[in-house]
């Protein structure tokens, strides 16, 4: 069949129009059907209530780039790994930025608002008592909140996870509040072990060679570090005497009276690894001398062998 010239031209024009329409339709279809680029789900609104508990699900949630935390809060008796300690307000030149500054400047600016002392108080640690596996983190407003003028900072206690292990296995189903004043806080107590030639800090729920009873503050008079530590350790053990199979390991071993001493308690047999804590609540020796000791002994597992 032979088409006449005008018909052929019309057909060609029609085909061209059809192709153009198809191209536009494909473009529109592609842009409308594809989900928009986005940050995560939820309303980008932070829960600013003091005392709330939260669940970070992976190390990505706690990455350096992450400034805010706006996932729904969870009950403090359900598995969680952060607890809000306090709410602060960011002031000064950084607060005057129109757009929220970079995660790094935010971290530098918010950090000082959340001192470790707040965490120590929350955990029930003495001022001279170190702890392990938990730190304080500042969460700021989301970019959306910042643009609305919010300059609030949330100081959270955040449980640390061990590198190479699942984040979700480092959660508690009870509040962190005063946990170091109870026997449940073993995982947050500072212990140490030897790996190769290096000393490594671990939680006391892991096999260890020594446990920290805290720092003995500078004192007056010529008392040796061992004597100073004996007092600290006794207080740490709720007034109980240190059993014979343990030894005091002051660090440093020789110290001026003005110098603080870190008091460690180690096994007399250095190859011995122990799991658990010597801690006992204050006056527990008087209140339940056998009970507390018995309870501790059940938790206290001792193995002998090389360091992990």
């Amino acid at each position: 069949m032979t088409l006449t010239l005008p018909k052929r031209r019309h057909r060609r024009a029609g085909l061209t129009a059809l192709r153009a329409a198809l191209a536009v339709a494909a473009l529109l279809g592609a842009t409308s059907c594809t989900p928009a680029f986005t940050v995560g789900q939820g309303p980008l609104a932070t829960d600013w209530r003091d005392g709330t508990c939260h669940r970070l699900t992976s190390a990505f949630d706690a990455g350096l780039e992450v400034v805010s935390e706006s996932a729904p809060s969870v009950g403090c008796n359900t598995p969680h790994n952060t607890e809000t300690l306090s709410i602060k307000t960011l002031r000064g030149p950084v607060a005057a930025y129109k757009d929220r500054p970079s995660p790094f400047l935010m971290a530098t600016s918010m950090g000082p608002l959340c001192p470790v002392k707040e965490l120590a108080d929350h955990l029930g640690a003495r001022i001279d008592q170190p702890f392990y596996g938990i730190h304080v983190t500042a969460f700021g407003p989301t970019r959306k909140e910042w643009s609305e003028g919010v300059r609030t900072v949330r100081c959270d206690a955040v449980m640390e996870h061990e590198k190479g292990k699942e984040f979700q296995s480092f959660m508690l189903s009870r509040p962190f509040k005063d946990i170091l004043r109870s026997t449940s806080g073993t995982r947050f107590r500072l212990c140490r072990t030897t790996v190769g030639k290096d000393l490594r800090n671990v939680g006391c729920d892991k096999p260890h060679q020594a446990e920290s009873a805290g720092f003995n503050p500078p004192t007056k008079g010529l008392i040796s570090p061992k004597e100073r530590c004996a007092k600290t350790v006794r207080a740490y053990m709720g007034g109980r005497e240190l059993p014979a199979r343990y030894a005091l390991l002051p660090d440093p071993e020789i110290a001026h009276s003005e110098q603080p001493v870190h008091c460690w308690v180690g096994q007399a047999d250095k190859s011995e690894l122990r799991t658990g804590s010597l801690y006992a609540p204050k006056d527990s020796a008087k209140a339940a001398p056998d009970g507390a000791a018995k309870k501790d002994r059940t938790k206290d597992r001792t193995t002998t062998g090389g360091s992990s």
Binding site: F37, V39, G40, Q41, L44, S58, S68, E69, A71, T142
Partner: peptide, 24 residues
């Protein structure tokens, strides 16, 4: 996995790339 808030993206900002279409 369900990502909440600004835990996805980059520093609270959207991270866009056409590579997403290939991944989709």
């Amino acid at each position: 996995h369900k990502w909440y808030g600004e835990t996805c993206g980059s520093g609270g900002e959207v991270y866009s790339s056409t590579a997403r279409y290939l991944l989709e």
